[in-house]
Design a binder for these strands. Structure first.
Lengths: 116, 116
DNA sequence: CAGAATCCCTGTTGATACTG
DNA sequence: CAGTATCAACAGGGATTCTG
């Protein structure tokens, strides 16, 4: 990070990366507010530990809001913050590139098999 | 990845992440074509092993072009491919968000210290 | 229900030495 | 010069168990 002081790409990527953060963000974007167990249901392969940890990091960065209801049984709801929503266009740009990259790879594949 | 089949954010992020890839891309974007040793000079803390590995991955994804000159001593030059250049707007978007995120954090900081 | 705490394992990174 | 090979260190993530 010290090598390229004027570049904030890594700053942003630190927030987006982590094995589960993009998925978590996608679920929150498409479903709105969800409680912990609902979030977990949407991410079948994640462990509670990871879900908790990643949500905490997102919360620390003001991307996700954590609302605790003092009830029994406990209820905790997660949602994107307004600030977190500013990430959506960025995610869209990344996603768009990713989509066309898949096409690019398929194209390469065809060329390769045709030349054999 | 199977959880969110319609989302290519992770596809794209796999190409951008890795501890050194954003730095390598930035160097190639700003300096154009560079040979291995020049690239290494721009990234003081990277090891040859890592530089080689990350360049290979970028090459596999058509982001970076590797030109080998059959000379003694050996010369190998790296540059962005045209396809790799399609990443620049995406990196710009990520960078812009990162820059304003730094401001956001500073703002938070001030609020926190003011309320004490 | 929503987590916290542990332990363990594996992949990634780093340091170092060697080579065409 | 531009790598490869090897080994050691470490961190991220997973499985499991416990709790307010």
């Amino acid at each position: 990070m010290e090598e390229t002081p004027s570049c904030r790409v890594e700053t942003a990527l630190e927030i987006l990366t982590g094995k589960w953060k993009p998925s978590i963000l996608l679920v929150l974007i498409t479903h709105g507010t969800l409680r912990f167990s609902e979030l977990k249901r949407q991410l079948p392969n994640i462990t509670q530990k990871m879900l908790t940890a990643q949500l905490r990091e997102l919360e620390l960065n003001d991307i996700v809001h954590r609302e605790i209801y003092q009830e029994v049984p406990p209820r905790v709801e997660y949602s994107l913050t307004d600030y977190g929503r500013t990430l959506i266009p960025v995610l869209d740009a990344i996603n768009a590139w990713g989509e066309q990259h898949v096409l690019h790879l398929e194209h390469k594949e065809k060329l390769a098999s045709a030349s054999q």
